[in-house]
Structures are given as structure tokens and as C-alpha cells.
Simulated assay, not measured.
Amino acid sequence: MLKNTPSQYGSLARALHWLMALLIIAMFALGFTMGIPEKGSALRALIQGSHINLGTLTFALLVLRVLWRSFNPVPVAGLSPLNARLAHWGHLLIYALLALQVLAGLAIVMTRTNPTPLWWGFELPGFGGSWHKALEEAHETLAWTLLAVLLGHVLMAVVHKLQGDASQRGMLGR
């Protein structure tokens, strides 16, 4: 089933969730290792380029996911009204942090003096600017904040699984 039901996410929502989870893990891995290779090295350029390209893909999927969520019921089976409300606000926080994170990354790229080519066949313009360092710091702070919120998300999924409630059927498809 493609669409969500009151008790379970549909196949598209689940695919977007798990694809984005993999992308976010890859983005964190690339982001945290980006500073290891020597500046100007081919390896560092590869890591940075991959991070930027996966960031643009993450943003595109985030937009698609938010649009899909807007037109489909969100399963709340197995959750109390309070937990359903907290889950709603928690998901909105994740979406907002992801959007801010990607937009901060985009702004960093645009403070470069040269355009940045993307795998998809176009370039992100480079306008230069003095905000580069501040944007990098904001991007890093957002990354740590997002990581904490995502760990809380995973922790709550584990708690609900251990409690044996039906909420885990939603994204696991069972």
C-alpha cells in the first residue's frame, strides 16, 4: 500500500524515512571526517563534494517527505493522545532542523568564490562573502543539535518497542 493508513505508514513514507536515515548517517560520517584529510587533497575534495551532493539530495527528499506527510494521515495507533502530540512536535522539530542544516550548508557553499558543481549536472553559485566561518559554526552546531534530537527519536522508538505498543508497526511495516 502506497498511502498511509491510521495504523501504519505506507510504502512511500517508509521508503523516504529509511532512505533519509541512511543519507543522514552518511552525511554525519562525511561531515565528521571532512577535516581529517589535508586541505587541498583529492580525498578532502571527494568527501566535501559527496557531503554537498548528498545534502542537496537530502533536502529534495525532505521537501517530498513533508509534502507527502501533508496529504496523508499520520498513524497514531498505539499512542496516547499526549504521546501522539509529542511525536508530532518531535517530527516537526526533526524536519525543521534538517531544513535549517541543509540551508546553512547551502549558504556555506555559496560563500565560496567559485561555483560548486553537483552530480546532477548543474552548479551551485559562489558569491563569496565574509559569513563563511560563522555559517560553518552554525552548521556544526545544528549538526550536533540534530544528532541529539535524532538519538532521542531512536530512543523513543526503542522505548515503544520494549513497551510492546503498536506504534512500532507504523514505520517498520509490521
Rank of each mutant, 00 (worst) to 15 (best):
V102E: 11
L100R: 03
G105Q: 04
H91E: 11
W144C: 04
T145G: 13
I108N: 04
A157G: 09
V63S: 00
L79Q: 03
E140A: 14
T56K: 10
F71Y: 10
T113W: 09
V76M: 13
L124N: 00
M156F: 11
A26M: 08
D165C: 03
L146H: 06
Q168S: 15
W89Q: 06
I47C: 00
R169Q: 14
T5H: 07
H17K: 04
M110H: 08
A15M: 13
A138Y: 07
T116H: 12
P73H: 05
L135S: 06
R85W: 12
L92H: 12
P117G: 01
H51A: 00
G35A: 10
L150Q: 12
H88Q: 13
V158R: 06
A138N: 05
L118G: 03
P37F: 04
G170S: 15
L16E: 04
G105N: 04
V63N: 01
I47T: 05
A148F: 12
A15E: 10
N114A: 15
T5P: 04
F59K: 03
H17G: 05
N72D: 12
L98A: 10
L146E: 09
L142S: 09
W120I: 14
L162V: 12
N53Q: 01
W68H: 07
S11Y: 11
T5I: 07
R14D: 02
L54F: 10
L79E: 01
L86N: 01
S7Y: 08
H153K: 00
N4T: 05
A104W: 03
S167N: 05
L62V: 00
I36Q: 14
A84D: 03
Q101T: 10
G164R: 11
L23Q: 09
P117L: 08
I108L: 08
G129F: 00
P125M: 08
A21K: 01
L30D: 08
L97F: 11
T111I: 08
L22H: 02
A99L: 13
R14F: 05
P81M: 05
D165W: 02
W18Y: 13
D165H: 06
A138F: 12
V154C: 06
H139T: 10
L98T: 08
V159W: 08
L16G: 08
S130L: 08
K133N: 15
A15I: 11
I94C: 10
T116N: 08
P81W: 01
G55P: 00
Q8V: 09
Y9E: 07
N83H: 11
R69S: 13
H132G: 07
F122M: 09
R14Q: 09
M156A: 12
L16Y: 02
G170D: 12
A15D: 02
L150C: 13
I108F: 06
A60Q: 09
G128D: 01
I36L: 15
A42E: 15
L16Q: 07
A26E: 08
I24C: 09
S70M: 13
G78C: 03
A29V: 10
V158L: 12
M1T: 08
L54T: 05
W68F: 10
A148L: 14
F71K: 14
K161A: 14
G55W: 06
I24T: 13
P75H: 04
I52R: 06
H160N: 05
Y95H: 12
R44Y: 07
K39L: 14
R44T: 11
E137R: 15
L57H: 01
K39V: 11
P6F: 09
V74K: 09
Y9P: 00
L98G: 08
G129H: 00
W131V: 01
L146K: 03
A77I: 00
L162S: 04
